[in-house]
Simulated assay, not measured.
Amino acid sequence: MNIDLLKRLCETPGVPGHEHRVRDLIAREAADLFDTIETDVMGSLVCTRKGEGENPERIVLACHMDEIGFLVSHVSDKGFVHVSPVGGFDPRNLFSRRVLVCTDEGDYRGIMMAEGKPVHISAPEDRKKVPEPTDFFIDLGLGAAAKDKVRVGDFVVMDEPLVEMGERIVSKALDNRIACWLGLEIVRKLLADGRSHKCQLTVAFTVQEEVGLRGARTVAYDLKPHIGIGIDTTLACDTPGVPERDKTTELGAGFGLHMKDNSFIADGALVREFEAVAKEEGIASQRTILAGGGMDGASLQQAASGARAIGIVVGTRYIHTVCEMIDRRDLLAARDVLAAFLSRH
């Protein structure tokens, strides 16, 4: 497994509207894997392998590049940086975090803290309050000099390394750099196994998914796929305190066939086809339905004249935190079933 690639993808900062560093990394990795590589107006990286014949079946895989983060909204005279979230945060996970403030001139490490009194001088009722994400600020340790280095609109990500824990991988931004990894490694798997495909295969590394599935929508209007596959993480709530019926997926039980969320309902025939391919190849799978949320598969399904669509997902514990956790066996299962499916089209 190419863990070095996943590490570089996860540790490269890129929030909605600022995915350029991730895009550049992927473009370098994709150079020898695709026939054409283009960047669209919104910033999505559209990588295509030609199909056979005059009008081949068009299959598009959507792998969003953005991670949740913040944009700088204000820098005080004392150099404290205030932020506006881009993506969904649970503020309980933001206390005392190390962050990276990314500017055009360079990056600065900082500490994210909540406004208010520290523990030694706060009242018990103060410590029970949960602030909003906009109530947090960043201290760069630069004092007033920060005002000359950081500007409104600069972006902020969590600053944590990827670590391996047995079969488990923990990192910030596994949502959705696992999909970026899959978009590249699926093609490498096809080539390594000597498998071909008749379809026109496009892997679209999309922008701004976390704020409304935006990049995938423009890609879908342009390419008009026959089949759209959204690749993403989903919840793995197989942990204490969550009812069994709400676990969504279980780590180590295989890739997820994403059948429904708030944004779309998967094509039934595609669900059955993926299950048949997985059974034939001996690949573990699990069906998944997510009570909320959305994913790029919805944009592929609903744009222009529409497409048959499904989601292929990897269960992730502690999602939208700095310690997202996946099982590498589930990630490899997603790679293998996608490669096998594509080799049949």
Rank of each mutant, 00 (worst) to 15 (best):
K7W: 05
K7H: 05
P13V: 08
E19G: 07
R21Y: 02
V22H: 05
V22P: 00
D24A: 05
I26A: 08
A27V: 05
R28I: 05
A31I: 02
A31M: 06
T36E: 14
E38K: 02
D40K: 02
M42Y: 01
M42L: 05
S44G: 15
L45P: 14
L45V: 08
V46R: 01
G51T: 04
A62C: 14
H64L: 15
E67D: 10
G69A: 11
L71P: 02
D77N: 13
K78F: 11
G79M: 15
G87F: 03
G88T: 11
F89P: 11
D90R: 08
D90M: 09
N93C: 11
L94R: 02
L94N: 01
L94E: 01
F95D: 05
F95G: 05
T103R: 14
Y108S: 08
Y108D: 07
A114V: 04
E115G: 12
G116H: 02
K117E: 15
P118L: 03
V119D: 10
V119H: 06
V119C: 11
H120M: 06
I121L: 06
I121M: 07
A123P: 00
P124E: 06
E125D: 00
D126R: 02
R127P: 12
P131L: 03
E132D: 12
P133R: 04
T134M: 04
D135V: 00
D135G: 08
F136P: 00
F137S: 14
F137A: 04
I138C: 12
D139K: 08
L142I: 09
A145V: 14
A146L: 03
D148P: 01
D154R: 03
V156F: 01
V156C: 14
V157T: 15
P161I: 10
V163C: 07
G166P: 09
G166I: 00
G166D: 10
S171Y: 09
D175V: 01
D175W: 03
A179E: 01
A179G: 10
W181M: 10
L182M: 14
I186P: 01
R188L: 01
R195W: 04
H197D: 07
H197P: 05
H197C: 04
Q200P: 10
A204V: 07
T206N: 15
E209S: 09
E209F: 00
E209N: 11
G215R: 09
D222Q: 13
L223F: 02
H226V: 12
G228T: 04
G230L: 03
D232W: 00
T233V: 15
L235D: 02
P243Q: 13
E244M: 14
R245I: 05
D261P: 04
N262V: 03
I265V: 13
R272K: 14
E273H: 13
F274I: 09
A278S: 15
K279V: 08
G282K: 06
Q286G: 02
I289W: 10
I289L: 13
A291K: 09
G294L: 08
M295A: 15
D296S: 13
A298D: 10
S299E: 07
L300M: 10
Q301P: 06
Q302P: 13
A303H: 04
A303Y: 05
A304P: 10
A304S: 11
A304Y: 11
A307F: 00
I312N: 00
G315L: 07
R317C: 01
R317T: 01
I319A: 06
C323D: 06
R335N: 12
L338I: 09
F341Y: 07
R344P: 04
